[in-house]
Amino acid sequence: MVKRLDSTDKAKKLVHEISADFGELMFYQAGGCCEGTQPQCFEKGGYYLRSRDVCIGQVEGFDFWVDRDLFEYWKHAHFELDVTDAFGAGGFSLESPRGKSFKINYRIFTPEEELDLEPVRLAED
C-alpha cells in the first residue's frame, strides 16, 4: 500500500527531540490562514479534533491529523513532513521555541498510486 505521509530525516530527528521533552505527541494541519496552513505539533490530546477530521498516517508513531475540509482538497496528494530553520507563522507548535517550523512538501499521487492508497482513519462523530 502507498503511504499518504512520510517525513524527512530532519523532521524525524526533531520529533524525537520534542517527544523526549513532552512525551506522546500529535500533529494537526488545518485549512485556515496563518498558523493553520502549516502542520502543528502538540502534546497528545492538546488539540481537540472535530468530528470526521482525518488521520492520514503517523510520524514516528504519532498521529498526523488533517482538517476534514483540507483533506477533501488534498486527498490526491502525498504529504511529506519537513522542517525549516525559521520561526513559523503561528508559534503555537511545540517546535517553535527551538526556532524551527514544521512544513509540508506535497506531490500529487500517480494514477497507479491512487489505486493502492493506505486507508485513512476518521475522528469519532
Rank of each mutant, 00 (worst) to 15 (best):
1 M>F: 04
2 V>I: 15
5 L>K: 00
7 S>D: 02
12 K>V: 09
16 H>W: 11
19 S>H: 07
21 D>C: 04
22 F>E: 08
28 Y>N: 11
28 Y>V: 06
29 Q>D: 01
29 Q>K: 13
31 G>Y: 00
34 C>R: 06
36 G>Q: 12
37 T>S: 15
40 Q>Y: 00
41 C>L: 11
45 G>A: 03
45 G>P: 10
46 G>V: 08
47 Y>W: 13
47 Y>M: 08
47 Y>E: 11
49 L>C: 10
51 S>H: 09
53 D>R: 08
54 V>S: 05
54 V>Q: 06
55 C>I: 09
59 V>Y: 06
61 G>F: 04
64 F>H: 12
64 F>R: 12
67 D>A: 02
67 D>V: 01
69 D>E: 05
73 Y>E: 10
73 Y>L: 15
75 K>S: 11
75 K>I: 01
76 H>C: 11
80 E>S: 14
82 D>L: 05
83 V>Y: 08
84 T>G: 14
85 D>F: 03
86 A>Q: 07
88 G>Y: 05
93 S>W: 00
95 E>Q: 13
97 P>A: 15
98 R>N: 04
102 F>G: 10
102 F>P: 09
103 K>C: 15
107 R>A: 00
109 F>Y: 14
112 E>I: 08
113 E>T: 01
115 L>N: 14
119 P>E: 12
121 R>I: 14
122 L>M: 08
123 A>D: 11
